[in-house]
């Protein structure tokens, strides 16, 4: 029992959260579908059941890999016809040197992965743009991102101006209300 708990603790990762999210979403959609007429409920019920069952099996496999071996089930394609080709395929598919997802940048004395910085900045940019208008936040997002990625100051300014130009084109050509946000009348 203790070893199972240790295994469970050790195996919780990003995939667990991804599967948990899909299971919760499909579970709630399955329950809610009961409120609709049969013809409107049938399709979401079938699909949410498949996601719920499949996701639960994958979650168990993810948490207790010693008990299950679902994720290693075989694929129909056998691309590599010879071991030589297979070796070459592996070679090519390897990440080029120094290009792993753990590339770090230093922000305020802290080492953070570039991926995390990008996600954080994009979420912040999306949210702040919705609140005050993208025309105001876009140059700042591009400038801050570029600065963190060690781009020279001259190029940071050029990129920020380019992004402002893009925002104006979208506002003018596609009539997007990028100068508006929740604070200035846009209704969400």
């Amino acid at each position: 029992m203790k070893s199972r708990l240790n295994e469970l603790n050790h195996n919780i990762d990003g995939e667990t959260i991804l599967l948990g999210m899909m299971i919760v979403v499909s579970g709630s959609m399955l329950v809610t579908a009961d409120n609709y007429p049969t013809s409107a409920a049938r399709f979401p019920q079938v699909m949410s059941t498949v996601v719920l069952l499949g996701g639960s099996i994958l979650l168990l496999d993810n948490l207790f890999p010693s008990l299950f071996s679902i994720s290693s089930s075989e694929s129909l394609t056998d691309v590599s016809e010879s071991s030589e080709i297979s070796e070459k395929l592996d070679e090519v598919m390897e990440e080029p040197s120094g290009q792993t997802t753990s590339v770090l940048v230093t922000v305020a004395g802290l080492d953070i992965s570039k991926f995390e910085v990008t996600i954080f900045l994009t979420v912040l940019y999306t949210a702040s743009g919705l609140v005050i208008g993208y025309i105001w936040t876009t140059p700042f997002f591009v400038a801050i991102y570029s600065k963190i990625m060690d781009i020279s100051n001259r190029h940071v300014v050029l990129l920020a101006l380019l992004s402002l130009g893009i925002a104006y084109v979208f506002m003018d050509l596609f009539r997007l209300p990028l100068n508006e946000g929740l604070m200035t009348g846009w209704v969400l």
Binding site: M29, F43, P44, M47, V50, V51, S73
Partner: peptide, 23 residues
Amino acid sequence: TVVAEGAMLKGLVAGSFGLLLTT
């Protein structure tokens, strides 16, 4: 789901999740 990389069940769940979201 069978041809794509990774396990079949993962593909099936991904495809069904996509179908579900369109409802």
